[in-house]
Design a protein around this nucleic acid. Structure first.
Lengths: 333, 333
DNA sequence: TGCCATAATATTAACGTTAATATACAGCCA
DNA sequence: TGGCTGTATATTAACGTTAATATTATGGCA
């Protein structure tokens, strides 16, 4: 099926080099020769061996994508954006998952380096134990997506999470809410911090005292959003609005609110973050912050690509704009 | 950073071969020699070049994964299963998307072959124009996941979709429903046919005449589920139950029903398919068919792996069992 | 002592490319 | 006629591995 230049060379009578150049459509091969060789190649279904090419050229046209949590529809969409951009630049993607485990992340990077990827795109693990020091020693270009690591801020492609979290909370405050529950994300995610900070700062700006117990940490998934909200209600924590770390958690929260007899948005207003595809179609169309997920992936790839082309280019943070979508789980607009 | 055997050889004074054998922990290298070489390797941060290894061995330890639609959370989960299984077998995954386009699929396969993947896992495009004939000519092992192609049935890992569709429809019929709307999937997906067939056969078994207009085709996404259901209601199509192709479509349908003032499950019962993670947490917890998505990916990889190890092994269809989850959008259980 | 087996290491070639360099043969001009 | 230019092709080496084969030293045994 595959064949090789050598084989083509023997069959055609031309040297391997000429065959190679003919197939790559280089200049100094006579047109008739080219045609003959290409015909032959087609006839025997020759496919060039990209592994050999990679070895020879020291370039694989492959990037490594290390995702911390691709079960999350958010990152799934980011990855689609990456794939899309990579394809249009004739690159491919080796995808590895880490499940938020720094050791697995480290291993993933190492093995991808062994596979000679030309660059690395990471949704990095951000906890206490992270690989930022190791990342700093990397000799190939890399970008972090949707998260940042201390000391590597310039390597990130982010969105304006702080600003939007702040804006949302301010709006709640302006509309009279004083007890705003924040279902925060896991501490090991940098976005949790940004969103929490936005929330906290907005409270302060509004002159509302920050209360610890109104911040409830979740793992970022629906199940936990449900449980934590349920518990919050049971513990008679009073709140009239929920700012949720993401849509998944918000969906869980909505469910808990319903079970406990709260009407949304009348009794409790709810807003999510990320704006997943289906959030709009929920029983109550979910208000959320629309993050351009695919674009995040695309921009990250393009950024990486620039650095792969010019290794000396300096890194600079990119921040994409998101947009608050007011729907049925909130009153204001 | 990387270095090479040659470099290690020069620095250590041993031949490249000895260095290679030492690092691979082969038998006939003196323990002290091994230790010395490995120390040195560690010291200079040597990482073996897997591209060179692949070329030499004619084996990349890489599989190609061709997904028709990874925006779909269903396939996203399947891919997690693949990745998981692959990793535990020391394999990696080149992921390519086709967006249900047969031409892109063909191109993807060709380029993956050029990259010398050891096997191929596909969520294939199934329409009129599909690549089944081309697939038949492939010289590397491949498996199709969650879909089948005529003439390649033995290459598929599937679930009992027909049976479950039949069971669901029968249950609806048994519970007195005579006007059961089927929001079917796109015709280019083999699962649409299986689910439709299950629906149709169950009606026949129940002595209910099949009516064309009670089958409404959707593209498999929430948006379309919403629109098609909305239209169905507007066109005064009477129905008391909905059997939806998948959960996404069901979510859209639920939304439309709500907007039109129908109460679920009292006025209309609804059941989905796939059982996506969050379906359980909807305002009305969605009844659905739980397909073991990650397992689907894992089994597919394992099946592929067997064939990569033993090229002469004959192919055989695998069918995984799914399970109907009765929740709040249906009355029976 | 001489031979053989064994252990440890070295040499060589190959995987399929591509780049650098070399060769062969025109045609052209002085 | 001799040398020069340019076109078309060929040869060689290299990328970093590993497998097959070769070499060397060592010890045991008759």
């Amino acid at each position: 099926m595959a064949g090789s230049l050598k084989e083509l060379s023997e069959l055609s009578g031309y040297s391997m080099n000429t065959v190679s150049r003919a197939l790559r459509d280089e200049d100094d091969v006579k047109p008739e020769t080219k045609a003959a060789i290409r015909n032959l190649a087609q006839q025997m279904g020759y496919t060039p061996n990209r592994v050999a090419k990679s070895l020879r050229l020291g370039k694989t046209n492959t990037i490594g994508v290390v995702s911390a949590d691709s079960a999350n529809p958010f990152f799934a969409e980011v990855i689609i954006g990456i794939e899309d951009a990579a394809r249009s630049r004739n690159h491919h993607m080796l995808l590895v998952n880490t499940e938020e485990d720094p050791a697995r992340e480290l291993e993933a990077i190492e093995v991808l380096l062994g596979r000679q990827v030309d660059g690395l795109l990471l949704i990095p693990v951000c906890g206490e134990r992270n690989n930022s020091e190791y990342l700093k020693t990397l000799s190939i270009p890399f970008e972090l997506i949707g998260r940042w690591l201390p000391g590597l801020e310039e390597h990130s492609v982010l969105t304006d999470e702080y600003e939007k979290a702040n804006e949302i909370t301010s709006l709640f405050a302006k509309n009279g809410h004083r007890d705003i529950l924040h279902l925060s994300g896991p501490t090991f995610v940098s976005g949790s911090l940004d969103r929490l900070r936005g929330y906290r700062d907005a409270l302060e700006e509004a002159g509302i005292p920050f209360r610890d117990n109104l911040v409830v940490m979740t793992d970022g998934h629906a199940e936990d959003g449900y449980h934590k909200t349920y518990e919050a209600i049971q513990s008679e924590l009073n709140f009239t609005a929920i700012f949720s770390f993401n849509d998944l958690v918000a969906v869980g929260a909505l469910r808990a609110l319903k079970e406990c007899g709260y009407r949304v948005p009348k009794d409790v207003e709810v807003i999510g973050f990320d704006d997943l595809d289906y959030s709009r179609f929920l029983h109550l169309s979910l208000s959320s912050v629309r993050i351009p997920k695919q674009q995040l992936g695309r921009v990250a790839f393009e950024e990486l690509y620039e650095h792969m082309r010019d290794k000396s280019k300096t890194y600079g943070r990119r921040t994409l704009e998101s947009r608050i979508m007011f729907r049925e789980t909130t009153l204001f607009d």
